[in-house]
Every structure is written in C-alpha cells, then in structure tokens.
Design a protein around this nucleic acid. Structure first.
Lengths: 338, 338
DNA sequence: ATGGTTTTCGGAAACGTTTCCGGAGAATAA
DNA sequence: TTATTCTCCGGAAACGTTTCCGAAAACCAT
C-alpha cells in the first residue's frame, strides 16, 4: 500500500534527498560513482520518482490532453493513434476525454485537463460549441492548443485541416462525369466549418458544370449512420429520389445505403453514393463505397508535432495551419453502369 | 500563465487558507455565511482547487486507469464508452492507454498509471502477456484491479467475462443444423483463455453431433482482418475449402470473406461464415455476417461497477467474476441455401 | 603555506492542498 | 458570577519532489 519515496532511499543510503534527486535528474554536481550507486539501490528498492509531486513543483505534468466529440465512428480513434505515436516517444502521456458532442461536457473536460496541469491540448470541437471564449482565454495566456477537424475561425492557434472544399469538389465532379445530374448533398451541421467547406465544394462543382440546383439539393444532417438512415427514409417517403448523393461522411452514406437496400433500391443503379472520411467500412460494405480518404494517422501525428513545437518554443510561437491531402477512392457505389 | 491558488483567495478575503479549504470541502466547522461568501468570491476569481496538490496529499487521484491492447477494432472503444458512462457520473476521470498487444508497453502503462496514483485500473491483457507477476504484486497490496475479456486464471481479482464456450458451442451447432459438415475454426492465439474457451465450445459441439474433426479443423490466427485474409488465402491455395468457418471474431471472419470474394467464391454458397464479438460491420457487410453479439457497453459498465465496489469497500473485498450473456445474430453468411 | 577555484553534497524553501491541534470568543449551565 | 461546552477560525505540518544557497573538502597555482 505504501509507496517508496525519495526519503526512504535517502535514509537507506545515509544521504540527503537532494543527492538522490540529483542522481535521478542527471545533474552535473554529483560524483559519478555516487550517482550509479544511488540508481542501483533505488532500482533494487523499486523506487521511481512520483510524477504527481513533480507536476506540483514544476507546474507541468508531461501530459497532453485530447478532447474529441465522440468515440463511435472510426475517425477519431484513428487520429488518436497518430497522436499517441508521436507523443509517447517524446515521453508524454496522453489523456483522452470525449465530449459527446456537448459544449458543456467539452468545457468541463478542458477545465479538468487544465487543472491537471496538462502541458497542452489537442481538441476537436463538439457540435454544440458556439462560444469559444474559454479557448480565447487559454490562447491569450499562451496555453499550447492545437485544433483539428472541427475548428473555429475565431481562434488563432495551430490547426490541422483537410482540404474539404477541394475534395468535395472533386467527389462531386466524379459524380457529374459519371453522368448523374440530379445530385443531392447530405451536408453536416451548418455550424461547422467542415460542413460549410464541403457544401461549398459541392455547390461550386455543380456551378462549374452548369448543373441546376436549388435549396432541396442540400439536406442538412448529422454525422451518424442513423442520420443518413433518417434523411434517406424521408426522401423515399417523399418519392423524391435523387440520382446520386454526396454524403458529408461515410456513416451517413452507409445509413443511406442501408435504408435504400431495405426498401429494395439498388446502389448505384437507383441511387449512387459517395462518402467522405474513408472508414474501413467503405471497402467492406456492399456495394463498396466510393469515398474521400482522409489521412487520419497523419492528422494525429501532425497535430501532435504542432503541439510539441509550441510547447518547446518558449512563447515566441506563430500558429500554423497545416492542410493535409487526401484521395478519392472510387468504388462501385458511384459508378454509372449501363 | 499563473494559476489562481487557494492563497490568492485567502489573501483577498483576509482569512486563512484552511478556512478556504473548509469552505470548499463542506466541513462542519465553518459558518454558513462565511462559506457562501468564500465560494462566491472564489468563483468570481476563477479559482478551483488544484487536483494535483490534492492527489499528492490524499495519495489518490480520483482517476481510473484503463489499459487495452488495441484501439483498431470496435470492441474496446465500445467497452470504454460503457466504463466512462459509470465512472464519470461518480466523479472519476478515465485515463486510457493502449498496449499495442505488447507485454512491455502494457507494463509501462500500468506503472505510469500507478505512479499517477490512479485509484484503480481496468485492464484487458495484451497478447504478449505471459508473466503476470506484477499484477500479483498489485493485488497482494490490495490495489483495486478489474480484468475483462483477456484475463488470466492466475490472478485473483474481479473479472468481467463472456461465456465464450457456450456461445461458440451454440454458433457451431447453428452451422451443424444448417447441414454443414466440414467445419473449420479460425481460433485466436492459443495463449488466451478466450481463445481456448471458444475452441473448446467449437470442438464439443462437433463431438456432441458426432462430426468428425482432426487437427486441420483448428487454424490458429490473430484478431485482425489481415489475419483472416492470410489464413483464407492459404486454404484457397491448398485447394482445401471447408464448407463453413467459425471465426474467433468478426474481423477475421470479414477478412476471410474479403478473400473469398476476391477469388470469386460466394458466401455462404461456397463457404459459410460465422463471426464473434458482433461489430457494427457485421450487419453492414455483404452478405450480412452471422455473429455472436457481446454486450460491449454492459461489459464496460460492469467492470466499472466492480471496480467501484472494490474501491469503496475498504480492504474487505471478495473478488467477483461476472459472466455476461450474449446472443447469436443469424444472418445470411451462414444460411444453407438450396 | 596561502589563497582561490572547483567539486560534491546537505539544508531548506517551495509547489497547492488538507487536516490536526489549539485558541479565542460566544453560548450555555450551574 | 464562574465554569464548561460549543462554534468558528488560524497556524502548522504533511504529501514527494526540485532547486537554490551555502559549506566542506579537495584541488590547483603561486
């Protein structure tokens, strides 16, 4: 039950605690033999320095906080793997918390992490987050912060993004080249920058190719399979099927596909589908889903590296925005088959 | 940059730090008005007690550590959601670490969490973990520990399990009732108890129905899609296709399905498939995969509850093993179609 | 031998809390 | 009135570290 502390080691070795500390921290003012002797007996006793005490003193914890909206879709876990890959090598621990798309939970999480003296945070904002004042406050104090995926233009901090506009544009052009005309976009929640960018890419592609559209061409939805199901169900009930759908992400595309199948429609014969955010499901589902692949691991790694840069630079730091590249994986769900 | 501490509040209010502490900890020996006044100004100043200092003093942190082997398959994230659901309500934070199936990383994670004074841990052992001495040591010191899914029989601590034997038995019987005779089991790594139990369930079902089998009926593999692909590829090359396969989990079943499709075989016409651990993919894939559903959320919640019981009981605690029930979701991949 | 520098170590303060102990004053009882 | 209890609060120690300051001892140069 009782932990072995630096004092126990000092007592056993008949020396002061400061000497033990010096041995463990590779200070210059300690004799080499003394250090080795101390390290040996400490190891034998099973002593290791208490990080909590260290945090209290140093006012930092060698911990990084990560706050994500959810854990259910594969996207965020994959990003986290990338984050950990970089940070653990650097001796940081990664604390993960989920906000469940709630602004309140998100804020609580951030404050908890702050109280725990994390040295920085990597955050993807929740759906509910409109007010970013607390982040502004953190940034103004110089707190290291990196945003990814769900960001806010109001915040001047490092960001890792994906060129949503470009790839939504390409994906839409792909559908147009296939010969589809009546194309609908399942857009994400309108408050999010990624939703807006994807929507604009979609609309500009239609404009470029002079494809007519109106307000019914955009259907705002969420990010879950159930959201895709619900909207698809509505379209079927209204007997208003489009020829093709660009979905804001894979889960909504998959939801749409499930519902279409349930009602006896064939993908892509009756409705063609394109997803976004390339999850593993895309190539496993039937028919395989055309999707824009995001480099999830790379997003995580980049976010971690940007955070480290900011932590290691002492104050003099200019926020960077890194925009990563993707790929359109064309599969059966969007092919025009004659 | 500077945090507001209890001393700042004390100075502002012209009182001692102990009074502030009393106000925040709802002690009896403080006047009601004093407490309210303190709380008000503290809130106004943006003060909140530093959990690190509290941890150091109290020798506990209100944090729970979770160590899982991997983050890639959906199983563990789903369990974690269940864990958090219970613990966060109780005011605990959940620290998640992944061992990447490495015994060394796992041990490092456990020691890191221990140093961070977590009040307990919920662990699923990695594939590489043969030596459980450190866990024995923790248990002998009375450290609260709950294992789930990947457990060790050597450890006397609370466990949350699934009746792998029973459900592997049922799943195999299902295949037998469909009329399949030449049935193969893709078993998990032989070192794991879950692998053994599922294998035994499989074999006993064959025995009960007097289905002949030999050593080629069991093919040992891993837990990933790629493992299923590899073993299926081998079977195809050997021109030695079984009529049906019971896979140790969904990813290996899906890997097998992918490879079968790639080579032009039809599921279930050429080979029938049954998975295990029911991931979301099972019902989305084509053909939909018959699979044993595990109550992942419930596993997490139960593990959290058992841990809380042990933490709240002061020493006098008898480890419990909870075995949760599942369900066989029969879908197209295992049907005998005439 | 003497003065100065370097090496090596011990003592003590500090980080932000909680809690025990004791004391001042008020309230109660005799 | 005096003695006793109760209420409320301040002081100080403690948790396990790191680091600054200073001191003893050893070294070097003159």
């Amino acid at each position: 039950m009782k932990h072995i502390t630096i004092k126990d080691v000092a007592k056993k070795l008949n020396c002061s605690v400061s000497t033990i500390s010096r041995a463990f921290n590779d200070k210059y003012d300690i004799r080499k033999e003394t250090r080795e002797h101390i390290l040996a007996t400490a190891k034998e006793m099973g002593y290791s320095p208490n990080p909590i005490a260290k945090s209290l003193l140093k006012q930092c914890s060698n911990q990084i906080g990560v706050v994500i909206p959810e854990f259910i879709n594969a996207f965020f876990p994959e990003v986290i793997i990338g984050i950990q890959e970089v940070l653990i090598k650097k001796g940081y621990q990664v604390l993960i918390m989920q906000s469940n798309e709630s602004h309140i939970t998100e804020l609580e999480n951030v404050k908890t992490l702050e109280n725990n003296m994390v040295d920085g945070m990597i955050i993807s904002l929740s759906l509910g987050t409109k007010n970013v004042d607390y982040y502004k406050y953190l940034i103004s104090r110089g707190f290291p912060l990196v945003l990814f995926n769900r960001v806010s233009n109001e915040l001047e901090t490092s960001k890792v993004l994906f060129d949503d506009y470009k790839w939504a544009f390409f994906a839409t052009e792909h559908l147009i080249y296939q010969g589809y005309v009546k194309i609908v976009h399942f857009s994400g929640p309108s408050g999010l920058v990624i939703s807006q960018n994807r929507k604009n890419g979609f609309l500009d592609a239609l404009r470029k190719h002079k494809i007519p559209f109106d307000e019914s061409s955009i259907i705002e939805t969420g990010f879950m399979i159930s959201d895709g199901e619900r909207e698809m169900e509505k379209l079927i009930n209204e007997n208003n099927l489009p020829e093709a759908i660009l979905a804001v992400n894979d889960p909504t595309a998959i939801g749409a596909m499930k519902t279409l199948k349930k009602h006896g429609y064939k993908v892509p014969y009756d409705v063609a589908l394109v997803g976004f955010t390339e999850t593993k499901l895309a190539e496993l589902i039937d028919p395989p889903l055309t999707s824009v692949a995001q480099p999830t691991h790379e997003i995580g790694k980049t976010a971690a590296r940007l955070l480290l840069e900011q932590i290691e630079s002492n104050g003099i730091f200019v926020p960077q925005t890194v925009i990563l590249n993707g790929r359109l994986n064309i599969r059966e769900s969007s092919m025009k088959l004659k």
